[in-house]
Design a protein around this nucleic acid. Structure first.
Length: 290
DNA sequence: CATTGTTTACCGCAAG
DNA sequence: CTTGCGGTAAACAATG
């Protein structure tokens, strides 16, 4: 029985590095890429701690975005208003936090050297292009943004991206059975998402929906439509697609193994409220609220 | 002008 | 102890 106004943990500093936080933000969005302002917003929405001293931590965060190779910059399309680019995760940075600590990585993700540098580019480019393709095909021509789908391609991989919310939760707060998700069956719309998250993730707090307060958006709707997903940080070199990348795809599209279906609530067995649906729901919310 | 992005430098701390 | 990661400050460029 929740008590409103009880903030015990919520304004403490979350045990995550900026890199983790940023990655979470990016992961939480169906497009897997966000503009800077949205990353800020996500973090502030989720962690009250970061509603203060914004100058300080946002500077640090920007520093991280530029400094770490695990983040790549995706330019906006010309027809998309707004300042700054989108930020995405590099496809190969999946193992960065493999040691389970979101505070300190095992090692910094570094994009090899010269020749391999090209690979980074094409990897990222290809990956994001794939995403765009998926998006387009599943969108059909017109369906409104309600269209939500798990971008997961059906690939038999069990790998879960470390920044997928399901993973983060699973690691940090081992849930007693499915308790945290027990009420989750009805969340095909995503509105219960937060309660789930809060339960399992104490220092995460969203003032907008905690205890019944309506949700606010994580993203401004207009912007949800991504730009042409082509990374710009590394000047693109014409390298054909790298097959190896396919192996990494599922990692990023960390959804349920076979849901490429846009808006089909019935499908993914509602009786099994998995963290996956959690992620999915978050995604829904991300797009649908404006 | 405010925001976004890049870069350098320094410190503290944890891992090895 | 050394190394490397994370956090912070700060200067500065680019961009809307």
């Amino acid at each position: 029985m929740p008590r409103p106004g009880r903030n015990t943990y919520s304004d403490q500093k979350p045990p995550y590095s900026y890199i983790s936080l940023t990655a979470m933000a990016i992961q939480s969005c169906p497009e897997k890429m966000l503009p800077l302002s949205e990353i800020y917003k996500f973090i502030m929405d989720m962690f009250p701690y970061y509603r203060e001293n914004t100058q300080r931590w946002q500077n640090s965060l920007r520093h991280n975005l530029s400094f770490n190779d695990c983040f790549i910059k995706i330019p906006r399309r010309p027809d998309q208003p707004g300042k700054g680019s989108f930020w995405a995760l590099h496809p190969n940075c999946g193992e960065m936090f493999e040691n389970g600590s979101f505070l300190r990585r095992r090692k910094r993700f570094k994009v090899m050297i010269a020749s391999e540098h090209l690979q980074k580019r094409s990897d990222a480019t290809h990956f994001l292009q794939q995403q765009a393709k998926l998006r387009i095909t599943s969108l059909g021509t017109h369906l409104p943004q309600l269209t939500n789908y798990n971008l997961s391609v059906s690939q038999p991989s069990t790998f879960k991206h470390p920044f997928a919310i399901e993973n983060i939760i699973a690691r940090d707060y081992k849930m007693p059975g499915s308790l945290a998700f027990s009420t989750m069956q009805s969340i095909s719309t995503g509105y219960h998402i937060h309660n789930q998250l809060t339960t399992a993730w104490p220092h995460m707090h969203n003032s907008n929906n905690v205890y019944g307060v309506p949700l606010k958006s994580l993203s401004h709707g207009a912007q949800s439509l991504p730009s042409i997903p082509v990374p710009i940080k590394p000047a693109p070199a014409s390298v054909a697609s790298i097959p190896a990348l396919h192996a990494h795809l599922p990692a990023f599209l960390s959804g349920s193994p076979q849901s490429l279906s846009p808006t089909s609530p019935g499908q993914s067995s509602p009786a099994t409220p998995s963290p996956t649906s959690l992620l999915h729901s978050l995604a829904v919310r991300c797009q649908e609220v404006t």
